[in-house]
């Protein structure tokens, strides 16, 4: 298997805090890994170690085939990093920011200008290209930040919470951009607190907490780990919950759980599609009016709850 990122036993301690306690990751070339975890889980530390910004205390990490400690320069030639803040110069225009990076990467004056123009076009920033970045909206800054990562044609992209603070439309547009990059063969490691984001973008998800990997798999695998789909019934009148439970219980694997305030009954059905039909018939026969009747699947939020045992912070 062709791996763009290979990490084994990565460890990092700050003063006395163990930020990473032996993390293993592997990311196939051309795929997206979502690194998920609550605040302080070690996501950013992991990204910084992989982007050669800090030297890990232990373990091994290879990015684009090169060891991050032994050959950091080779790694740097093949990566792009977008940190939590959009790392762009506010007083410069978008174009000037991109040209600066092109010059730093030795593309030459003309080469840097050409590359800047390409990226402005690709990221829909041509109209704003000659305005100072200070006048940009949050979404535009993020796009410019992402464009800045790409000046040197990297193979591996690190995105640390790329959509934090963006409105839904900007988030969606950034997601589409990332998908476009991946379609072109880019490998992406992204950290996020938004489970929806990982679900949408990531081929593989690694959940870390307190510096350790506590789960990994595809989004579907993780959801399956948490449990099967369940039937959720909302009764029209909350005082009918007991009646609903009475007729539904025989169809369920376990005792149905209820939320009397919202008038909800949740149960895992014993036999799939037949169970759904049986449940509907049973409710009708018992004369329970139903406001909502739906088969639900676990979301990544449920995964998170289940694994970390507390509300994910965002």
């Amino acid at each position: 298997m062709d791996l763009a990122i290979e990490v084994t036993g990565l460890r990092k301690t700050y003063d006395k805090t163990e930020a990473l306690r032996g993390i293993d990751l592997s990311v196939r070339t051309g795929s997206v890994l979502g690194l998920l975890g609550p605040n302080g889980a070690g996501k950013t530390t992991a990204v910084r170690a992989l982007a050669t910004l800090l030297v890990p205390d232990g373990g091994q990490a290879k990015v684009a085939g090169f060891d991050v400690v032994a050959q950091p320069r080779e790694v740097r030639r093949r990566i792009g990093l977008a940190g939590q803040n959009a790392a762009v110069d506010e007083l410069l225009t978008g174009r000037e920011n991109l040209v600066l990076l092109g010059r730093l990467l030795h593309l030459g004056g003309a080469g840097a200008r050409r590359r800047a123009q390409e990226l402005l076009e690709r990221f829909d920033l041509v109209a704003a290209g000659d305005r100072p970045v200070g006048t940009y909206s949050g979404g535009m800054r993020r796009r410019l930040d992402l464009a800045s990562c790409l000046v040197g044609h990297p193979q591996v992209l690190f995105l640390d919470e790329p959509t934090t603070g963006l409105d839904p439309a900007s988030r969606q547009s950034l997601w589409n951009t990332v998908r476009g990059l991946v379609a072109d063969g880019m490998t992406v490691l992204l950290t996020t607190q938004y489970l929806e984001e990982a679900d949408y973008l990531a081929d593989q998800i690694v959940v870390i907490a307190a510096g350790q990997v506590i789960a990994d798999g595809t989004p579907d695998e993780l959801k399956r780990k948490v449990g099967q789909e369940w039937l959720e019934v909302a009764v029209a009148l909350p005082d009918r919950v007991a009646a609903a439970v009475a007729v539904l219980a025989p169809l369920a694997v376990d005792e149905p759980s209820t939320d009397p305030v919202k008038g909800l009954v949740k149960l895992q059905l014993r036999d799939g599609m037949d169970g759904i039909a049986a449940a509907a018939v049973a409710l009708r026969d018992a004369g329970v009016d139903v406001a909502d009747f739906a088969l639900r699947r676990p979301t990544l939020d449920d995964v998170f709850f289940n694994l970390v045992g507390r509300q994910p912070q965002g």
């Binding site: 110069d89 990076l101 730093l104 040197g152």
Partner: peptide
Amino acid sequence: QGGLVDRFRSLPISRSA
């Protein structure tokens, strides 16, 4: 603070430039 140093450090450029 703005993260520019992080970006520069992630580039294959000299550490003193």
